[in-house]
Amino acid sequence: MKRLLFASLLFLAILLLWQSVVSIGVWSPVLLPSPESVLRYLYTSITDGTLLEASLVTMRRLLLGYCIGLVLGLPLGLLTARFEICEDTIGVIALGLQTLPSVCWIPLALLWFGQTENAMLFVVIMGSVWSMAIATDNGVRHVPPIYLRAARTMGSRGLHTWFAVVLPASLPFLVTGMKQSWAFAWRSLMAAEIYVTVLTGFGLGQLLHFGRELNSMEQVIGVMIVIVLIGLSTDKILFSPWEQFLHHRWGTAKTG
C-alpha cells in the first residue's frame, strides 16, 4: 500500500511537471502537447476504435513472428550446443546476426517480400530467432554434468535425456532468452511499422508515423504511451508465470 502510494505520487509529480512546462509555454504546443490533449486523443481514438484495431494488428504480427522465432531458435540452439559442426556454422551466424540491429533487415525484407505482411513477419522473426538460439545454446552448456551422470545411471539416454533433463535444466536460461527475444521482436516490429506502410493493416508503429506526418504530437505521445503499456503488460502476462515457477522450484530471486 505504501509502495503504491509512493508510485502514484511520483507519477502525479511527473504529470504536474509536464503540465507546468506546457503552461509556462517554453516550447510550442506543436512540439510538446499538454497532458490533457494527449488524454483527449487517447479517448477519441479508443472510442472510434482506431487504437484498438492498430493494437490488434501489431499484436498479431508480433505474436506470430515471435512464436515462429522461438520455434526456430530453440532447436537451432540445441543443435549448436550438441554438434561442434553446428556450433562453428550456425553458432557463428547466430552470434553475428544477433548483433545486427533488426532495422537493418527492413530494406532486404522490402525487396524480397514487398510491402506485405510477410515483410513484417520476416523482420520480427529475424529479430527474435537469434537471441533465442543463443540463450538455448548457453542454457544447455550450463547444465551441470552431474545431472547428466545421475540421469544416465537411472537409465536415461538419448532423446529422453534431452527432453527430461537437458531442457528442463536449462529452463532459467530459456526464460531469460524468451524475454530477451520478446524485447527484440517488439523493437523490430516497431521499427518495421514506422518504416514500412503495409496496406493490409495499420499497426501502432504506423499510427505513430502518421502522427508525425500530420504534426499531431498528442497522437505520437499517446501511441507511445500505449506501446509502453502493452510492453509492460505482456511482460507480466507472458513471463511472470514462468518466473513464478522458477522462483517456486529453483528458489531463484523473486521478480515482479
Partner: peptide, 16 residues
Amino acid sequence: ADRMMMFQEPALFPWL
C-alpha cells in the same frame, strides 16, 4: 537399473 549410484552432491533435479 540394477546398479544405482549416489554421488557426493545430491544431484537432484531442481525442476522436480
